[in-house]
Design a protein around this nucleic acid. Sequence first.
DNA 1: CACCAGGCAAGTA
DNA 2: TACTTGCATGGT
Length: 220
Amino acid sequence: MERAQFFLRIFKTMLEALGPSGWWPADSPFEVAVGALLTQNTNWKNVAKAINALKNAGALSEQNFDQFSQEELEDLIRPAGYYKQKAQRLRIFVEFLRLRADGDILNLSHWDIQDARRALLRVKGIGPETADSILCYALDMPILVVDAYTARIFSRHGLVSEDVDYHSLQSEIMDVLPQDVSLFNEYHALLVRVGNGWCKRKAGLCETCPLQPFLYSEMS
DNA sequence: CACCAGGCAAGTA
DNA sequence: TACTTGCATGGT
């Protein structure tokens, strides 16, 4: 079986088992980016609390964000953890938007995707996964986000090594699939949902995982 | 109690 | 270059 077919079969299986994900859960592209920064190494439930606090305070827009001090932001996002570091990272990101995108994240969607990616990666606090999350889920650009779940799931299916680096993992999957924003959007969302549900680090739940039948090494 | 969560940057050798 | 550590809350 071709690798491309295998990856598409994995995708279809997850989609049929779990249904569409409707990612990213947010009211605006700016909120997507804020969520992408806040969810670094952090459970989404805690991030949602921080997002709600920011929303209730009126801080969730590029224009209003600057009205809040570092300390106020820290208090609002505290439930998301690493709150001092993340408050600083959010401030740096909004400053980046003001300098490079006239204070509106949507202006980045006119950029060449690789230019936008390189620009985001230069912002302190934005690494590959956060940059790609912003590109795909806030700006609707065709790029596949990969993460720890992706490496874990595909290594357990015999396709990559557990500690594969980000860009190798991304290329292995993304390069053999149709370059389609909706496909990449849904693919990552489904992988995270499967990871959350069945592929924890020490999971004993694998017998009910939707992907259980598809071990690459056993397919012909 | 231990372990985990939709990473990243900075320091060390 | 290749490891290691700090960051921090909240759920299981």
